[in-house]
Design a protein around this nucleic acid. Structure first.
Lengths: 108, 108
DNA sequence: TTTGTTGTTCGCAAAATTACGAATAAAATT
DNA sequence: AATTTTATTCGTAATTTTGCGAACAACAAA
């Protein structure tokens, strides 16, 4: 068994994907992408979960780099992190768009 | 707090993303996408983890619909599930490609 | 300064994930 | 029939995730 580590690329893909791996976080991203202004409360209103849980999901998305938040006391404004969003867009497009084996002998 | 459920679309996105949310599974998908033939042993060789763990990851990818396996005794051939792969491609492209708020007042 | 609003953090519990070696299953080979 | 090859399943442990209410922090408003 070849003890090969995962590449940075693979780790990064997985990081993005994991952050998107919960319906609440997909909903948050979708909402943020569609909103001009995006306070915590607005996001909480959209979701069927407690605010503590919303806060947790936001933290994960922030740590994955997909969103950013800034305090606008006493509120907090959340937004898509556009730079990383674009990066994710490219990475997923490249990953899922790579040519798949077309041989008849394989997997029909 | 509006007790709104997540949409089928959101659940499906999250399901795909979650399946891709581990570097081992990213590596598996990458390997499968690049190979004509893809037996369990070949995949195991590529990864720094025990076969039981590989088997588990393959099971998750299969259950998420991203891959398929068929027995070719005593081996098992694994392949990308092309139909769902395409679906994922479209869903991620649509999701990450959706227009993001461009207002100056928002998130600069 | 007291009160109210807004979110985060804490503490906890339940469930899911990740990982491994051992045991097992299934079929080909000897 | 016994053995070998190949991969899954079992049993277990450690860690992470998900979720909640309560407590807390930070600042605005009265």
């Amino acid at each position: 068994m070849v003890r090969k580590n995962y590449s940075e690329e693979q780790e990064k893909m997985a990081r993005f994907a994991k952050a998107m791996g919960h319906p609440a976080r997909i909903a948050i991203l979708q909402f943020l992408a569609s909103q001009e202004c995006c306070f915590f409360g607005d996001i909480h209103e959209e979701l069927p979960i407690a605010k503590a849980t919303v806060s947790q999901h936001l933290k994960e998305l922030k740590e994955a780099g997909l969103i950013q938040g800034e305090i606008e006391a006493p509120k907090v404004r959340y937004c898509i992190n556009k730079e990383n969003w674009k990066l994710a867009q490219k990475m997923f497009a490249d990953f899922l768009g790579q040519p798949i084996c077309k041989k008849e002998s394989c997997c029909e």
